[in-house]
Amino acid sequence: MFKNFFSDFKKKRNLAKLKDEKFRFLFEKDSSGEYVVFDTETTGLDVKKDEILSIGAVKIKDNKILTSQTFEIYLKNSAEISSKSIEIHHIRPCDLENAIDAKEGIERFLHFIGSRTLIGYYLEFDVAMVNKYIKKSLGIELPNEMIEVSEIYFDKMMPLIPQGNIDLRFDTILKKCGVPDMGAHNAVNDAIMTAMIYLKLTQESNNVKTSI
């Protein structure tokens, strides 16, 4: 109760800062029944300095991952991409030829997610990255509800591994959940894999112990 009250309060304060009325929909009650799983590729892990290179997202409805409505954009960046980060995200400068302006890209992303609940793996970071952009342009932070898959996984594994040394690396969760590795780690593929993990963990809530 108090938690709800607190989040409502936070939401209202957030809304009060909204500079552009066009984005009021982010605060409306979601009626689609869908979730959005998203992942970003960035130039680095420092929210303050680094920038978003690409965003990949898919919607989940019931037991389906709507890959038919996959969202994928590449964003223009202010600086050269360092060769070290290329090793991680495999986005080369030439891959950004179809990139669009950050402002436009982020707005398109906001339209894609609407007020749906967001799902991700270490979502906090991805959300912080997006917030960095919209704070500047819209004055707000993402108001959406959030679900962290590594948290669900942790809760599920807890009773099985009492010592609590639960390996929360993405690859480990992937393997433990029996989700196929889609190979290339780009934003969209990661989002799809995360979505599969989410479905695996939630759809099968009762007999997950036997299969993990």
């Binding site: 037991n63 389906k64 991952i65 890959t67 038919s68 196929p180 759809q203 099968e204 007999n207």
Partner: peptide, 28 residues
Amino acid sequence: KIDIAYYTKDTLLISKDIESIAFYIVIK
């Protein structure tokens, strides 16, 4: 046009009474 779906064990996908609504390709 392709979605990914997840079904738990013992789900009945198609039968005489359940009309087939999709073409399925098994990933796992």
